[in-house]
Design a protein around this nucleic acid. Structure first.
Lengths: 117, 117
DNA sequence: GCTATACTGAACCATCTAGTTCAGTATAGC
DNA sequence: GCTATACTGAACTAGATGGTTCAGTATAGC
């Protein structure tokens, strides 16, 4: 089986498990933003938003740079390759497991149709 | 923007954020298993494994059926479509954001060459 | 130098998580 | 009926999470 970096994957699936953090990623996809910008968008204190940014940074999904007073956040270097790979692998196995069930269901539907529903 | 079912996505990214639960999904991809089987594989008490199974069940990733004493677990009806879609959307935006940065593009190309793709 | 802005860190809180133990209940098989 | 197996539920633990407030520090701009 493929060996995944459990740390990366744990951290990023954990990061993605929160709607606010997914929202932050979507906002940063449109434009870089300061902590203040993000905190305002999500109606949260600066401190609260800072914590979310730290979580995203640890997962490698966001990178930040402080210039003067302002810390600017942008999408990080990781593009969720491993996560996409894991999910695709799962989906493939899942499809295989359900192929048999699918054919059975299809047969049942055909029978139903023959009986004119 | 596409509207996702936040509950589903929260639940399943949360479920996937744990290495044990990803392992359970991989094991169930190979064959159905009882709680006892899973608990043994992951060196955990029955009660502990039961909790993981409940989390996976709530996320729709596993379904279970009790026959006699034994509760059999199998992959559930959900195939992580929404999650795959979210991640793919993110990866697309991520790529666009980084296309503008010449240096990063150059780095990616170098990496691709190294991996021989 | 003064003031407003932008962040940071510590401390606190309630709730959730991942695990345990222990005491059950229900079923399988002799 | 008896015993072993398989699970279930309640209660407890330590630690993480998602948020807050409050008291700072550092910088921008007049």
């Amino acid at each position: 089986m493929v060996q995944y970096s459990q740390n990366h994957i744990d951290a990023s699936f954990g990061a993605l498990a929160d709607a606010t953090r997914r929202g932050v990623l979507e906002q940063l996809g449109r434009a870089d933003a300061s902590i203040t910008d993000l905190a305002e968008t999500f109606h949260m204190t600066l401190t609260g938003m800072k914590k979310h940014v730290v979580v995203l940074e640890r997962a490698g999904l966001v990178s930040t740079e402080k210039v003067g007073r302002v810390r600017t956040c942008r999408l990080g270097r990781r593009g969720l390759e491993e996560e996409a790979t894991w999910i695709e692998g799962y989906r493939q196995v899942w499809a295989e497991r359900f192929d048999q069930l699918d054919t059975v269901v299809a047969e049942l539907k055909q029978k139903e149709n023959k009986h004119g529903r």
